[in-house]
Amino acid sequence: MYFLETTMLSYLVLLYPILVTATPTATASCAPGGYLSILSDFNLQLPIATSTGGTAEQIPASKLAGCNGYQNSDWFYWNTASSYLVMKAPPTSTPCAKTSGSEHCRTELREANPSSWSPSGTNTMTVKLQVAQADDGDYGTVIGQVFSASFSKPIIELYYNPEGVVTVGLETTTAGGHENFTNIGTIPEKTVFTYELNYSNDELTVSLNGGEANHFSVTQLGTPDAYFKVGDYNQGKSVSSEVDIMSINIVHS
């Protein structure tokens, strides 16, 4: 009987090798860059400063790369049990370091390689994530952006609120601060989903879970060169936010 069981097990291993091929498990000693190699194409903006009263600390792409790259147990780390990148940000009621021109706290990745690109080509970013906790801002936490490299303002921001409503904020002026808002779907908190930001052939689209694309005109902005941002940009006053990222895929051509 033992021989029969051993033989059968060997046969199954040969026939179905995937059954015994496990995905490597994240370890506490390994930084997020060891699991998401694309992090080496981003700079990281944090809600902490290197000096008292200083602006937000920024970690360059070179220091995010690999298992020995940057990690922070409060704001930016790998969840060992569920295998995803945890990005947390405090509300404005909690003192935090901010980037220049912003009133809000963030733990956010800014595309650095390339640092900008033309919308006349193909440019897509697809992110698989869950929002573990959205903030109490008017439209919730910003989880993704197409950002202008020309006038240094968002072209669009993708918001997620505590009710799971996903909203696109489309900028209407190069001065910034004049967004038009469009609800594009509802996904409950702590539910894994994907979004795609596509700024290609001078047209901008946003889609959820591979569904129908929502089209947004950017002619009022002059179709500027841009770059992608992704992460946890807290818009609230009193509620912290958490965004958990499983994967980020970017295509430029």
Rank of each mutant, 00 (worst) to 15 (best):
Y2S: 00
F3T: 12
L4G: 06
E5F: 07
T6D: 05
T6I: 04
T7K: 14
L9C: 09
L12P: 01
V13Y: 02
L14Y: 05
L15H: 13
Y16W: 11
P17T: 13
P17A: 04
I18K: 12
V20G: 04
A22E: 10
A22D: 06
P24Y: 14
S29A: 14
S29G: 09
S29K: 01
S29Y: 03
C30P: 03
C30F: 10
P32E: 12
G34L: 00
L36S: 10
I38V: 12
L39D: 07
L39H: 01
L39V: 04
N43L: 03
N43M: 01
Q45N: 08
Q45R: 11
Q45H: 11
L46E: 06
L46A: 08
L46S: 01
T55H: 13
A56R: 12
A61D: 04
A65F: 05
A65Y: 09
G66T: 02
G69S: 12
Q71S: 15
Q71A: 11
D74L: 04
N79D: 15
T80E: 12
T80C: 08
A81N: 14
K88V: 03
A89K: 07
P90K: 13
T92R: 12
T94R: 10
K98A: 05
K98N: 02
T99M: 05
H104E: 11
R106V: 06
R106Y: 06
E108D: 13
E108Y: 10
L109K: 07
R110I: 13
E111W: 06
A112E: 07
N113I: 08
P114E: 08
P114L: 07
S116R: 10
S116V: 06
P119G: 06
P119N: 05
S120N: 14
G121E: 11
N123V: 04
T126C: 11
T126L: 12
L129C: 06
Q133I: 01
D136E: 05
D136M: 03
D136V: 08
D138A: 14
D138V: 04
D138E: 11
T141H: 07
V142H: 02
I143A: 06
I143G: 03
I143D: 12
G144H: 02
S148E: 15
A149N: 14
A149S: 15
S150M: 09
K153W: 07
K153D: 12
I156P: 04
Y160V: 13
E163I: 10
V165R: 11
T167V: 14
T167Q: 07
T172F: 04
T172W: 05
A175S: 15
E179A: 13
E179F: 05
N183T: 15
P188K: 05
K190F: 06
K190I: 13
T191V: 05
V192T: 14
T194E: 05
N201M: 00
D202H: 11
T205K: 03
L208H: 00
N209G: 11
N214E: 15
F216A: 10
F216I: 15
S217Q: 04
L221M: 03
G222F: 09
D225G: 10
A226E: 06
F228I: 08
N234C: 09
N234Q: 04
Q235D: 03
G236W: 14
K237T: 15
K237M: 06
S238H: 11
S241W: 01
D244R: 15
I248C: 09
I250Q: 15
I250L: 13
V251G: 08
V251W: 02
H252L: 06
